[in-house]
């Protein structure tokens, strides 16, 4: 590779220093560029949507195929909304991985140093990241929830029962599932900020979602029932269910509020560590 024999003096000036200091909106623009210019974003978001819709179609299609051989009680217990939304549990893994990567990849690749050289105040950087990634996650999550619901219901042709958005509880279940996915991926962002390492943070995330429930099942029944309701996975389960609240669980909105608390706590701890540790 050869370089033109130009001196830096030859370049036309094009930078002027604006007044004041960099703002959160500047950082958000930068974070948006970071997010959209790496392949892992497109991969994880693509997997979220495809898996959500695909597994929903599979689950509802399966039900439709066996409808004629299902017993009456089974038919009555069948909840078309829930069956079309349950597959979204797979989506949280893909979105969670992206939530972790959004910050852990910066530390893994050294980009964090470039980022903090450009914007040395670290809390605003994390806030900008949270807002930008949170909005993207919310849009993709809600889109996935609604698309999964519609595709699932379209698969459930007569004589199988299907739901519409005006079916009692259905709209809450669909929007709630999307919200659950967005908030759990912010929790993953918080874990990534605390742990910094991609593999470690993803393991912790999967541990909280999948391993923690198994550990709690080993506890004595009474303790188990008290603890289970606090699990993110349990909160998600309630979300996908349009028909009331199962035993040993918070109802939908208080559950979501608790989940927001988890995400906020992880992000605050992450923010404190971000400021106190060397980049």
């Amino acid at each position: 590779m050869t370089v033109a024999a130009t001196s830096p003096l030859d370049a036309a000036p094009s930078t002027r220093v604006p007044a004041g200091r960099y703002r959160i909106t500047d950082l958000m623009r930068s974070e948006w560029t970071k997010l959209r210019t790496v392949r892992s974003t497109m991969w994880t978001l693509g997997v979220t949507i495809v898996v959500g819709i695909g597994v929903s179609a599979l689950a509802t299609g399966e039900t439709r195929a066996h409808w004629s051989s299902m017993s009456l009680p089974t038919r009555l217990a069948f909840d078309p909304t829930r069956v079309s939304l349950t597959p979204l549990f797979f989506c949280q893994l893909a979105l969670g991985v992206l939530g972790v990567l959004v910050i852990s990849a910066e530390f893994g690749t050294g980009t964090a140093r470039a980022t903090f050289a450009a914007a040395p105040r670290r809390v605003p950087v994390l806030v900008a990241k949270t807002i930008v990634f949170g909005l993207v996650a919310l849009v993709v999550s809600e889109a996935t929830a609604f698309l999964s619901f519609f595709v699932g219901q379209a698969m459930l042709t007569a004589p199988a029962t299907h739901a519409t958005l005006s079916t009692p509880g259905a709209l809450r279940a669909v929007t709630g599932t999307g919200l659950y996915l967005a908030v759990i991926s912010l929790f993953a962002l918080g874990l990534g900020t605390i742990l910094r390492h991609t593999a470690g943070a993803i393991s912790a995330f999967v541990g909280v979602l999948l391993v923690l429930p198994i550990i709690i099942q080993a506890l004595p029944g009474s303790v188990q029932n008290e603890v289970t309701r606090f699990l993110p996975a349990r909160i998600g389960e309630v979300m996908t269910n349009p028909r009331g609240v199962p035993l040993h669980a918070f109802s939908a909105w208080p559950g979501l509020l608790l989940l927001c608390g988890y995400a906020a706590a992880a992000l605050v701890v992450g923010g404190v560590l971000l400021v106190s540790r060397d980049a």
């Binding site: 094009s14 930068s30 560029t33 790496v38 690749t109 050294g110 470039a114």
Partner: peptide, 27 residues
């Protein structure tokens, strides 16, 4: 220039510079 390759390997050179430029409102 703090250390070579403090850059996300999946991001293009232009995207890397653009995200830095945007944070400081550089055109």
């Amino acid at each position: 220039l703090l250390e070579a390759k403090a850059i996300h390997p999946g991001r293009s050179a232009r995207a890397h510079l653009l995200m830095l430029a945007e944070s400081n409102r550089i055109p």
